[in-house]
Design a binder for these strands. Structure first.
Length: 584
RNA sequence: GCGCCCGUAGCUCAGCCCGGAUAGAGUGUUGGCCUCCGAAGCCAAAGGUCACAGGUUCAAAUCCUGUCGGGCGCGCCA
């Protein structure tokens, strides 16, 4: 509808230009807006206000010229008014609104689909937490946001590829492997002083136990040997990093390549499986799990080197990122010969670009924002169009239980994992709460509220609307009645009351999809669904609007109306990853 | 110190990108509605210097500058 009106105004504009009312050198972007109040019609256009100065006419007079150019007998336009300082208000016919119901009921799950994306491909990388432990509630927000955004972009006409980048190489993984092995040694009966910088979680015990079941004492070494000449840990007055690094090296020595890899892979497999299962149960699935270990980091570095964007200093290899807009240069290869995390990231993003996606989206935690400039710098240095990469930063979520702020520390043992959150509040509520806020907004996640099955919980409010409609159709059957959709009967619906309000809301759905997709803001959809649900509840509770009534025509018209509402609720809930229950 | 995000009703937040008509929701508070298709619901009332100060504009919550307050980031960590 909006697009249609836009076309009419564009035609009017060119017509006025042709007639000489508007100078040839004036151009303008035509904005049509939904009005806030019914007395201003359905759509308003401020073009006359915008152009008045350039044209040298009073806004209201110019508006009148525009109105003259609009078709006078258009079946979807009831009337056009000039109001206030010079707004052109357009009132649609009820016929135009009834067409919306027809469209929803015929296109069903496809209603709201847009050609905005024009089949362009988008790769979304999200969560990508290190496989060194279970996902925590912080990752949950990235997961919910990424999955909803992916769905939204699909509906908006993009081809979407969802990817999880697995950091299966690097020091953190070595720390994990070493942690597992030390726990394993304890299970073998060795006395071990567990390093302060190792992974403390219970899941490390579980992995160690699994290892022990499978291999018995085959990987055992005496703890005296393991800790021989190892620099002291921080609580012994030493340095925790040096302590753990020395232990990693010792593990590799004592176990040898093959056995060390056995421990390492065991840890990786178990944790990755756990993460994958966790996300699946959260309704988040990926097209690809990309392994860092499959990257050709050296190749990427060589390419930068060959292009003259690197130099050596203090035994390390640096990238001149400051020449590409970063605030300073960055290290690629440390003086000990190891690649930095940044080096892998360059190789990964180079790889992404080479796979030929039209757009790349990274969803990162807000603490990574310092990283954006350097990754883009590297891409520019490699000759890639860094504009194709969009990094969306997601702010942290703070958990509350009512008024009480929950500690997120690993040690507290309270609600650190996504799984625990899901088990307490359920997937639907969790998914909804995570994306209800703009992603760059700090999120206060109240567990009490999410669990509440009362009127204060927005998820249930929307789902309830859906279930209520299902219930009407169940009752319809029980009464032995049937529903027949008939466009002509829709004229029995009111044109200025609650039925009209619902029609209006339904007609806006495609616009919401487009603006939400364009802005990468699925939260807009949650607000829309709340509005739609509210409109429905208001309609439903009014004694004047009973659905299952004697009057067959009106009954069918109202059934068509609520069937359309239910369809749109379902479509929207599907995008944000929340179920649409028939009963609750 | 520099960079990014945020500041709107008691509380949690939309609206800001792209300036427009009386600034919106939920929750909380107060009052009303179940012989009637689901009360997990509906209706009504009260509640605002849009952090502050300038600027641009016919018009500023929205754009620009500065100040104040909160969060985060500024490693040869990942």
């Amino acid at each position: 509808m909006k697009q249609y009106l836009h076309k009419l105004f564009t035609q009017a504009f060119t017509q006025l230009q042709a007639q000489g009312d508007i100078p040839q050198d004036v151009s303008v972007e035509i904005h049509l807006e939904r009005t806030r109040e019914v007395r201003y019609g359905d759509f308003a256009c401020n073009i006359a206000l915008v152009l008045a100065k350039a044209v040298g006419m009073r806004p209201r007079d110019l508006a009148a010229r525009f109105v003259e150019q609009l078709p006078s007998n258009d079946p979807s336009i009831a009337k056009v008014e000039i109001a206030g300082p010079g707004f052109i208000n357009i009132f649609l016919t009820s016929q135009a609104y009834h067409a919306v119901i027809d469209e929803i009921l015929t296109t069903k799950a496809v209603y709201g689909r847009s050609q905005l994306g024009a089949g362009k491909s988008v790769m979304i990388e999200f969560v990508s937490a290190n496989p060194t432990g279970p996902l925590h509630v912080g990752h949950g927000r990235g997961a919910a946001y990424g999955a909803a955004l992916a769905n939204l972009l699909i509906v908006a006409g993009f081809k979407v590829h969802k990817e999880y980048y697995v950091n299966d190489a690097g020091r953190q993984m070595d720390i994990l492997a070493t942690s597992i092995w030390l726990r394993y040694l304890e299970l073998c009966g060795e006395t071990v002083t567990f390093p302060s910088n190792a992974y403390q979680g219970d899941y490390v015990w579980d992995i160690a136990a699994s290892l022990h079941r499978q291999h018995g004492d085959a990987l055992r070494h005496s703890s005296a040997k393991v800790f021989e000449n190892i620099p002291a840990d921080v609580d012994q007055g030493g340095d925790k990093e040096q302590h753990i690094d020395a232990l990693i090296e010792r593990s590799q020595q004592l176990l040898g390549e093959v056995s060390y890899q056995l421990v390492f892979q065991k840890g990786l497999e178990i944790i990755l499986d756990d993460i994958r299962r966790d996300l699946e149960q959260f309704g988040v699935v990926y097209d690809q799990w990309f392994l860092e270990s499959s990257l050709l980091v050296q190749t990427a570095i060589d390419e930068l080197k060959a292009a003259g964007h690197t130099y050596e200093r203090d035994g390390a290899l640096w990238f001149r990122s400051s020449e590409f807009g970063d605030e300073k240069d960055r290290v690629l290869v440390r003086d000990n010969g190891q690649f930095t995390y940044f080096a892998s990231d360059i190789a990964y993003h180079k790889n992404k670009f080479e796979r030929g996606f039209d757009h790349l989206i990274n969803i990162w935690g807000a603490d990574h924002h310092g990283y954006v400039a350097r990754v883009k710098a590297a891409l520019m240095a490699l000759g890639a169009d860094a504009e194709r990469l969009k990094v969306l930063l997601v702010q942290f979520a703070t958990l509350y239980r009512g008024k009480e702020r929950l500690s997120m520390s690993t040690r507290s043992g309270e609600f650190v994992t996504l799984r625990e959150l899901r088990e307490e509040v359920g997937t639907d509520a969790a998914r909804f709460f995570y994306i209800q806020r703009k992603s760059e907004q700090h999120l206060n996640f109240d567990l009490e509220l999410a669990k509440s099955q009362k009127n204060d919980n927005p998820v249930y409010y929307i789902q309830y609307a859906h279930a209520r409609i299902s219930s009407v159709f169940r009752l319809l059957q029980e009464k032995g009645l049937t529903w027949e959709h008939n466009s002509a009967m829709l004229s029995r619906l009111d044109t200025d009351g609650r039925e009209q309000a619902l029609l209006l809301k339904l007609s806006r759905y495609p616009e919401v999809i487009e603006t939400a997709a364009q802005a990468y803001e699925p939260h807009q959809l949650t607000y829309y669904l709340l509005d739609l649900a509210q409109n429905f509840h208001t309609f439903y509770d009014n004694k004047q609007h009973k659905v299952l009534i004697e009057d067959q025509e009106l009954r069918n018209a109202r059934l068509s109306l609520i069937a359309a509402v239910q369809q749109v609720l379902r479509n929207g809930l599907t995008i944000i990853g929340v179920s649409a229950p028939e009963v609750m």
